[in-house]
Design a protein around this nucleic acid. Structure first.
Length: 121
DNA sequence: ATTCTCACA
DNA sequence: TGTGAGTA
C-alpha cells in the first residue's frame, strides 16, 4: 500500500530551502563539524540524506537558538551521538525539551516532503 | 540555472 | 559569515 517514492537524497540547494540556511554556511559547517560530511556524487556535488538534515537542524538549533559557540555545539552534538542520536539523546543526559522541539521541526519538514511528489507548487 | 573550490574581506 | 571569480 505504500506509494509515493519518498525522496531520499537532497542537493545542497534543497537542504538550504528546508533549513533556511545558505549554501556557504553549510559548507563552512562541514569544515567545523566532522559529522557533517555529505557524500559527493561523480561530479563532486554534495548529496545529503535525511540523517544529515537532522544533524544540520540540530547544529542550527544549537548555534542560533541556544547560542552555543562552534566549540560548544561540537561537544553537544557529540554527546547526542554518543547517547544514540537524536532519539537516544532523549533518554540520555540531554534536555528532552530540545530533542522534542527538534523532532517537531523535523517532522514538519519531512511531512511536507513525504506527502509531496516534488515539482508541484 | 546550480554547485564547486578557493580567495578575501 | 558574505561575496566574487572561474568551473563543471
Amino acid at each position: 500500500m505504500s506509494a509515493e517514492p519518498i525522496q531520499e537524497f537532497f542537493s545542497i540547494g534543497e537542504v538550504c530551502d528546508l533549513t533556511e540556511l545558505k549554501p556557504h554556511v553549510l559548507r563552512y559547517w562541514e569544515s567545523q563539524f566532522r559529522f557533517l560530511n555529505p557524500a559527493k556524487n561523480r561530479s563532486g556535488n554534495r548529496v545529503y540524506q535525511r540523517k544529515e538534515i537532522e544533524l544540520v537542524l540540530l547544529v542550527k538549533h544549537l548555534l542560533y537558538t541556544e547560542k552555543f559557540t562552534l566549540d560548544g555545539a561540537r561537544q553537544k552534538v557529540e554527546e547526542h551521538r554518543r547517547a544514540g542520536g537524536l532519539r537516544g539523546a532523549a533518554r540520555g543526559a540531554l534536555d528532552a525539551q530540545v530533542v522534542e522541539s527538534l523532532e517537531r521541526e523535523l517532522h514538519e519538514i519531512l511531512a511536507i516532503l513525504d506527502g509531496r511528489p516534488r515539482g508541484a507548487s
